[in-house]
C-alpha cells in the first residue's frame, strides 16, 4: 500500500517528466525499428530472390542478435560516442534479424502456382513482387516488425547507461537510492505497458493485413 501511494505521488509530482521520457523511449524504439525495416525488408526480398546469398546474410544477422546488449552498446559507444544516436543504431541492429527473417520467410512461402500464374499472365518481375508477393507476405512481414518493436522497447531501457535517456533513466534513479522501489516501478510499469500495447496493436494490424481476412475488412 505504501509503495502504491509513493508511486502515485511520484507520478503526480513528475507527470510531465514521465510523459516526456515515455515519448522519448517510444521514439527511440520506433526509429530503430523503422530504419531496420527500411534496410531489412529489401534485404529479405533480395535473399529470397537470390537464395545463394541467404545463408550468409542470415548467419550475419544471427550473430548480431547473439551479442549481449550491454556489450553492443559499449562497443558502439567507443565508435559513436554517448547519446541517442548510438542507442538507435543498436536497436536498428537488433531489429534486423526478425525483420529480415520474416520478410525472407514471407516471400519464399508465397504459393509457387500463384507466381507461375502471375508470370504466365504477363507480369514483369517487379509487378509480381508488387502485386503478388508483397501483398501476400505482408502479414508475415508485419509479424517481424511486431517482434522487433517489442524487443526494441525492452532493450531501449539500458540506453540510459550511454546517456540516451528514456524510461531507463527513471529505473536507474530508483536503483541508486535506498528505498527506491516505487521509483523503479514508476519506470518499469510504463515500459512493460508500452511493450504489451505495441504487441497488441501490431498484432491487430497483422491480422487485418492477412489475405485470409480480407472479407472482414469490408
Amino acid at each position: 500500500m505504501d509503495i502504491l501511494t509513493k508511486l502515485m505521488n511520484y507520478y503526480s509530482q513528475n507527470a510531465a517528466y514521465v510523459w516526456a521520457e515515455i515519448y522519448r523511449h517510444f521514439l527511440m524504439s520506433a526509429y530503430g525499428v523503422l530504419f531496420a525495416a527500411i534496410i531489412g525488408i529489401p534485404i529479405g526480398i533480395l535473399i529470397a530472390k537470390y537464395s545463394r546469398l541467404s545463408p550468409w546474410v542470415m548467419s550475419l544477422v544471427n550473430v548480431i542478435q547473439t551479442i549481449p546488449a550491454l556489450a553492443m552498446l559499449a562497443v558502439l559507444m567507443l565508435v559513436m560516442g554517448l547519446g541517442t544516436n548510438t542507442l538507435v543504431l543498436s536497436l536498428f541492429l537488433y531489429s534486423l534479424l526478425p525483420i529480415v527473417k520474416n520478410t525472407y520467410t514471407g516471400i519464399t512461402e508465397v504459393d509457387r502456382t500463384l507466381l507461375e500464374a502471375g508470370h504466365a499472365m504477363g507480369m514483369t518481375r517487379m509487378q509480381v513482387l508488387k502485386m503478388v508477393e508483397l501483398p501476400l507476405s505482408l502479414s508475415v512481414i508485419m509479424a517481424g516488425l511486431r517482434t522487433a518493436l517489442v524487443i526494441a522497447i525492452g532493450i531501449a531501457t539500458i540506453g540510459t547507461f550511454i546517456g540516451a535517456g528514456g524510461l531507463g533513466d527513471i529505473i536507474v534513479r530508483g536503483t541508486n537510492i535506498s528505498n527506491g522501489t516505487a521509483i523503479i516501478l514508476a519506470g518499469a510499469i510504463p515500459t512493460a505497458l508500452m511493450a504489451v500495447l505495441a504487441d497488441f496493436l501490431m498484432g491487430w494490424l497483422e491480422r487485418a493485413l492477412s489475405p485470409a481476412n480480407h472479407k472482414h475488412l469490408r
Partner: peptide
Amino acid sequence: DIGYVIQQIGLFPH
C-alpha cells in the same frame, strides 16, 4: 496475348 489456365486454379487470394 495468350490466355493461361492451370490445374491449381491460381486465383490471387488477396
